[in-house]
């Protein structure tokens, strides 16, 4: 499996990651070699095997619908990069 520079740019966009243009070729080579390793999975026929997502085959535990968390807005916003009047500030998204 060989990824081209355009594939890397596309994946990086999907992952919202900025990659320097100078590093694109290196990532294309590294990611291609990882995908070669991963392609070894195709040596085995696994058709009909039920996929395993939780190693103990556990299902989601439910809890009573009770309030357990208290409001800690001030504590949490103290570590935020940019807040104003209890809100997180980001660049303008609506014209």
């Amino acid at each position: 499996m060989s990824l081209k520079p355009t594939d890397v740019r596309n994946i990086a966009h999907l992952a919202r990651l900025h990659i320097d243009e100078a590093d694109i070729d290196r990532y294309a080579a590294d990611l291609s070699s990882i995908l070669d390793l991963v392609d070894q999975m195709n040596q085995i026929d696994s058709s009909g095997v039920a996929p395993l997502s939780n190693p103990l085959d556990a299902t989601q535990r439910l809890r009573d619908d009770e309030v357990t968390e208290t409001d800690q807005r001030d504590k949490f916003q103290k570590i935020a990069p940019d807040v104003e009047q209890g809100l997180y500030r980001v660049p303008k998204v609506i014209e």
Partner: peptide, 14 residues
Amino acid sequence: AYYLKAQQLRRMIK
């Protein structure tokens, strides 16, 4: 091809 296949092999390994 990737995630589902890996989860099937995961069960075989278990």
